[in-house]
Design a protein around this nucleic acid. Structure first.
Lengths: 259, 259
DNA sequence: CGAACAATTGAACCGATTCAAGATGCGTGG
DNA sequence: CCACGCATCTTGAATCGGTTCAATTGTTCG
């Protein structure tokens, strides 16, 4: 997402709507002039507050609006064929969710606030209508959707548990950084159980791996407080160039295998 | 380089352009009238023939066109971080591929023909331009993209090898049926190695499971010739309500464990 | 303080891969 | 038409990663 903003983003009248989230990025393309912009501002729903565990929309409901996180964190949860809950994503401030609801015209997942969060939204029909005479807006929506296709594609590779966890940490780091937060210290407000569910493993494994990463000096973790200490090593683990388990084994014999 | 040469191809009349594939479905919405339709027909590239193993486009190339299969089969392959090839999809006649290339404006996978195939395509910029004054067309593209987001999402659940293989067979069956082919007998022209790669397992496992399914009377398979004999049982396996392995074990002691 | 739940830790187990042979199919040339 | 050689597929035994089961520690909150 090239956040090309050659000029500043002052627009004082605009600001108290939803200037920090991607919905406004979609809706306010660089070259959008006054008239279209005001139209958009009118349909952009400003922030609504949700408490911990409150649902924003539910799976099965008719789709009408796209959502974006302003503050806090939102998880989207779906039921797999066996009826078990499966977390398909944690959404950070600035990110858009519910894009998969367009085609079936109903929400496929239920969105819950983790902790207290604020969320803004836009009516999709209106957005479509606007897009049909704002080519740049249309283009940005195409891009956002295509990006989501890509995002989900790359998850299909089968990785070891430690690769998945390392990748998960790095993904969060990248996304926090993109929105202006620290990329080395972060607060994992979601419970271990949720992380495990999202990564398709069992909380025990998450626990063991966090510990192993900590002991290796790659991260430091205490409860919800996570710090990345060695990004390059963490990256090496994520792509499979390095394994904690092998390392631990090699502690006995002093030989370290170098790829 | 995709051998897309508009002038080399005869294209005798409008009608035998690409009436059987989804690109024409996208491009010819139900309520599209003469003028727009003719515009579309002009930019829809008619069929091009590819031999076994020939590439249609390559990962890294600049994105310009969307593609659809007319006949045969196409696989899209990407390189994971370790540099190993990973097949992210087999595309049947009528299906569109390369949707994930829109956002990065480059192809993320390489498309190969399996056996001989015919493929048609359309220039994306032109399509966008048309969509911007054909709201129904725009809507259909949104839908197609959203559908692709959904498609890839649902693959994220972690399944046992037998669930994945059963699901793969059923998915092929459904897709063949949707395009007017038999949903009980099909020809698996792709090698076992490719199936295994796509399902993230090892050819040995594919082999063992095909045999097990055959022995249980769920399918019949000989080389590339596959027949589904018991759809409901196959479905039960795919969703995890039934397991061949458990069944085989219970052959010894006659007790059948129920949940 | 103590109950209830979340997280951690250890030991046994199971599914899928790995490694190592064998079997089968298939195009080529004798 | 058969023999050869190569690639794909199949089959079997050992191994490994992650789960399961079970018990303990830690944390939160009435």
């Amino acid at each position: 997402m090239p956040s090309v903003k050659p000029k500043d983003v002052p627009a004082p009248s605009v600001q108290n709507k939803c200037s920090t989230c991607s919905l406004s990025k979609i809706c306010i393309p660089d070259h959008l002039s006054g008239a279209g912009l005001e139209e958009l501002e009118q349909v952009l729903e400003s922030s609504i507050l949700y408490q911990n565990g409150e649902s924003i929309f539910s799976a099965g409901q008719q789709f009408d609006r796209l959502y974006a996180v302003k503050s806090g964190m939102v998880k989207t949860v779906r039921l797999d064929p066996e009826g078990k809950e499966s977390i398909d994503g944690f959404h950070l401030p600035g990110e858009v969710f519910a894009l998969d609801a367009i085609y079936p015209v109903k929400y496929l997942s239920t969105a819950y606030s983790i902790g207290t969060s604020t969320v803004c939204s836009i009516d999709f029909e209106t957005l479509e209508h606007l897009a049909s005479h704002l080519p740049r807006l249309q283009h940005q929506i195409f891009q956002l959707l295509s990006q989501a296709v890509h995002k989900t594609h790359e998850f299909q590779v089968e990785l070891s548990a430690e690769q998945k966890l390392a990748g998960f940490i790095l993904d969060l780091s990248r996304r926090f950084k993109m929105r202006g937060y620290s990329d080395t210290r972060m607060n994992l407000i979601m419970p271990r159980r949720d992380i495990a569910n999202h990564l398709k493993m069992v909380p025990e494994t998450v626990s063991r791996l966090f510990k192993a990463l900590h002991q290796q000096g790659v991260i430091s973790i205490d409860r919800t407080d996570l710090a990345i200490l060695n990004t390059s090593k963490l990256t090496a683990i994520a792509v499979g160039d390095y394994s904690i388990r092998r390392a631990n084994r090699n502690d006995h014999d002093d030989v370290v295998k170098s790829a």
